[in-house]
Simulated assay, not measured.
Amino acid sequence: MEMLPAGETRIWTTLDFNQDGKQHDWLRLPFSTDLSAYGVIPIPITCIKNGAGPTALLIAGNHGDEYEGQVALSKLARQVEPRDARGRILILPALNYPAVVAGRRLSPLDEGNLNRLFPGEANGTPTQMIAHYVSSVLLSMADIVIDLHSGGSSLYYLPCCLIRSGKTGAETARLIELMQVFGAPIGSVSDGTGGGGATTLSAIAQAFGVVALTTELGGGGGFSSTGEAIASQGIYRVLKHIGVLPNAETKSPPPVRLMQVAGRGAYTYAPIHGIFEPAVELGDSVEAGQSGGFLFPVEGLPRQPEEIRFAQSGLVACRRAPALAAPGDCLFKLVTDVGAN
């Protein structure tokens, strides 16, 4: 296990993590403004504990405009009672509370992307301080973390559960087992080269020896009841599987299609500023060189529309939601079956 981030957190709570029972409280993030000199940012947290056992850390609202996980964890915090548990469940349905309240991916306090700032800084920006608290306090208690994401305002996503490849074959096999128990239609295995790399919550959890599952459950800034149900059912199955909710009534998980992102060529980006007319939908299978649609230049005539073509074959796992795109915006992400050439 690597050394935890340096510095003592300034975030505090009256919640007693070692007390049996069910407690609702805030994490209090000090934040001073012109109108609130000694103010704090209130980040809701629930602790459900009953004796000895594993600790599950459940997080949503890492990005504020991703809603299925927030609702799933709010329901779970109300439904689960201490008598149901063996061990401890820590629930944070709105981890990046300022972003959640604003309905934004980034925090309005500092424009911080929480899932690109781990392990954080004890005396950094508000978002860095949240990342530091998770890294230095919450992960030190956890045996497993489930971080619930969706596509947010800019992407539509096929519901999926994601893992990072383990440091050993046995670790990867354990993660794949838990991903299959979770039961999202697609199980995506990453080598960590995409997205936020080593600065995501899943990456820092892995570095600290904590099992981590991540999801993508919907997107477009809306709410998917299907995605929320996948999250809720998946969490109950995983918590039952690891012994935290031993008597939970769950359905058997549906088949999970194991897939992977095959390098940076899986991503297709906008080359110009234009209006995006997609030619394929989520879940479509595409071939290398196939047209993914057109970008119509905002300048209008005489510039011609730009045709978008895929660099590789695969399944369309996510697609851009807003019609207007700027150079560098991600239009598509493809996944391929594990073991496929």
Rank of each mutant, 00 (worst) to 15 (best):
T9V: 09
I11L: 15
T14I: 10
D20G: 12
G21C: 02
F31Y: 15
S36A: 15
S36G: 13
V40Y: 11
G53Y: 07
L57A: 02
L58W: 03
G61N: 12
E68K: 02
S74I: 02
R86F: 05
L92C: 13
Y97H: 15
G103E: 02
R104M: 15
R104H: 13
D110L: 04
E111N: 14
G112E: 04
N113T: 04
L114W: 05
E121T: 15
V134R: 04
S135V: 09
L139P: 03
L139E: 03
V145N: 08
L148W: 00
Y157S: 14
P159N: 03
P159T: 04
I163A: 09
S165Y: 08
G166Y: 08
G166R: 05
T168Y: 03
R174F: 06
I176N: 00
L178T: 10
M179R: 05
F182W: 04
V189E: 05
T193G: 11
T200D: 06
L201Q: 06
A205R: 00
G209L: 04
T215A: 08
S232P: 00
R237D: 08
L245G: 09
L245A: 09
P246I: 11
K251Y: 11
S252E: 15
P255H: 05
G263M: 00
G265L: 09
A266Q: 05
Y267N: 10
Y267H: 11
A270R: 09
I272F: 00
L282A: 01
S285G: 11
V286N: 08
S291G: 12
G293F: 01
L301D: 11
Q312N: 04
S313L: 03
G314S: 06
L315D: 12
R319V: 14
P322R: 10
A326G: 02
A326C: 12
A326H: 14
G328D: 01
D329V: 04
C330A: 14
K333M: 15
K333G: 09
V335N: 11
T336W: 00
V338W: 13
